[in-house]
């Protein structure tokens, strides 16, 4: 099989398109690069969906943690505590074991006028279940970053807003939220990078591979198991991740610069926190 044919056969294998069986012979560099690259689609998918949803939930949680009412504050505190205080590895295990307990036939929700029937069999699939765990996990970490940023918004900014008569929702949307984002951005960039790395845990803990469709590390361990040589597939995964991390850093850097574009350059530099207690998860 030429390399081009290999790419055709296995390029989208992780989505179930192309060859049904995984390669049984050859295991050349082209095969390994193609299949591991194909698995990378899942890593990107998990990271993208978790980051997008997590960002929104994190904002809510950060605001909720500052709420005066204990009814709002306490649940937010607990959510963040549980997801930040325990290993993601264990969270995957527990989540999978809990999700399989849902009734197979689905749940019927009585909504008064009609009954809504919700199927539940899809939630134990990695694409939904693992994405859910990653979503909650990153939301908790990000909430803590946002909370720190909210707390360090200069009082003067808020007082100035009040002097202009900007209050309530307007004040949050136009003053607090953008400032929070700007202050939190370097730490959030790190969170995004490490969440992306954490996606490699999905098929290593709890969630089974469906029809041998897995992520980059799943295929790398397939090759390591077949060729009995870990020195090729794992460095390939590392190579892919280094490339994608660079892309991620660049993208986030662009956004960060945009967030800071109204500030004079030395101001930007001064404002950028130098020690980031949140730098790693």
């Amino acid at each position: 099989m030429s390399c081009f044919e290999t790419i055709q056969a296995y390029g989208l294998r992780s989505l179930g398109i192309g060859e049904r069986l995984l390669p049984r012979e050859g295991y050349d560099l082209c095969q390994q690069f193609t299949l591991i690259g194909s698995g990378l689609i899942w890593n990107v998918y998990f990271a993208a969906i978790a980051l997008a949803l997590g960002f929104a939930l994190a904002t809510l949680l950060a605001v909720g943690k500052r709420a005066r009412s204990a009814w709002i504050r306490k649940p937010c505190d607990w959510f963040v505590f549980i997801f930040r205080g325990s290993p993601l590895f264990i969270q995957f295990f527990v989540a999978y074991q809990l999700l399989v307990l849902l009734p197979r036939d689905g749940v019927t929700l009585p909504l008064g006028l009609f009954d809504l029937h919700v199927g539940t069999d899809w939630v134990t699939r990695a694409w939904a279940g693992a994405a859910l765990v990653l979503f909650f996990n990153t939301a908790a970490y990000t909430a803590e970053i946002f909370l720190g940023a909210l707390r360090s918004i200069p009082r003067g900014d808020l007082e100035a807003a009040e002097a202009y008569g900007i209050t309530g929702w307007q004040r949050f949307r136009r003053i607090q939220w953008p400032t929070m984002l700007r202050l939190a951005w370097p730490a959030y960039t790190n969170e995004a990078i490490f969440l992306f790395h954490a996606t490699t845990l999905v098929f290593f803990s709890g969630f089974p591979a469906f029809q041998q469709r897995g992520d980059a590390l799943y295929y790398a361990s397939y090759f390591a198991g077949r060729t009995f040589n870990p020195f090729v597939p794992y460095p390939i995964v590392a190579f892919y991740f280094i490339c994608l991390t660079l892309v991620l850093t660049w993208t986030f850097g662009r956004i960060g610069r945009r967030l800071n574009r109204h500030l004079p350059t030395n101001e930007t530099r001064r404002r950028r926190p130098r020690i980031l207690p949140q730098i790693i998860r």
Partner: peptide, 25 residues
Amino acid sequence: IAETDATLLEYTTPDEAVAAVRNGE
């Protein structure tokens, strides 16, 4: 199983494979 028409679901230990049937996976 990978060679049959069935859809293969892989687990790392045999008891997980049994548990998969029990919980309907």
